[in-house]
């Protein structure tokens, strides 16, 4: 899928430029694009180094665990099919907390651990269980309060107020996550009625 889109962008760019008789644009864009890709990645080093450091402090201080305690009642409501004492519930909570804190790198392994534990509860090993679908709905919508990469790039491109998008982003991510949860419930109910 990604390959097809990548190819489509390059090939359509090539043909459009060629038809206008200005193929030299493509050559320049190739070089400029590559240069910019490296520049952007190198520019991200500073914020990534700093932010991952801060996040390690947060982790060791037990911020993820504290947030998990706050989220527990929510998770019980979201995952009625998972016994509250099952290890899967713990992993789900850790995954939700890590996502909320913008710890994308830490959230994925926790989410995969939750998937393994949910698979133990799953009667049909090839078919996604209800709880798995809810976990995926949460993770694809990804409730994030601090999109650090976006803030860093805004700064890098000369924004006067790199964080002024945070309130708007918070509204958008909240709407997205609530709709994901509601859609998950809606389609599950429809599937039940269909049978």
């Amino acid at each position: 899928m990604v390959s097809v889109l990548w190819l489509a962008m390059l090939v359509s760019g090539f043909f459009v430029a060629a038809m206008q008789g200005r193929i030299e644009v493509v050559t320049r864009s190739l070089l400029k694009g590559a240069e910019e890709g490296v520049a952007v990645a190198l520019g991200l080093i500073s914020i990534l180094v700093f932010w991952l450091g801060v996040m390690r402090i947060a982790e060791e201080a037990g911020l993820v665990a504290a947030l998990a305690r706050v989220l527990r009642p929510v998770a019980r409501w979201l995952f009625p099919s998972v016994p509250p004492d099952h290890p899967a519930m713990g992993s789900i909570l850790a995954n939700m907390s890590a996502n909320l804190l913008g710890l994308g790198n830490a959230a994925t392994p926790l989410g995969l651990k939750a998937m393994r534990e949910l698979q133990e509860l799953n009667p049909d090993k090839e078919r996604a269980s209800d709880a798995m679908c809810t976990l995926l709905a949460l993770n694809t919508a990804s409730l994030t309060l601090l999109p650090t990469t976006v803030i860093a790039l805004r700064l890098q491109y000369g924004s006067a107020q790199p964080t002024d998008i945070l309130p708007a982003a918070a509204v958008a991510t909240a709407v997205g996550t609530v709709s994901a949860v509601l859609l998950d419930r809606f389609y599950r109910r429809r599937e039940r009625r269909g049978k």
């Binding site: 390059l10 760019g13 493509v26 864009s29 890709g37 190198l42 180094v49 700093f50 991952l52 390690r56």
Partner: peptide, 30 residues
């Protein structure tokens, strides 16, 4: 924690170069 930052940034270079080139060609060509 900060030690992981450098590697993370370097690891995205190939992805970012690939995509930036495609997007740039796509836009600049019209």
């Amino acid at each position: 924690g900060a030690k992981d930052g450098f590697g993370t940034a370097v690891n995205i270079i190939p992805h970012l170069v690939g995509m930036m080139v495609a997007v740039r060609v796509f836009r600049d060509s019209g």
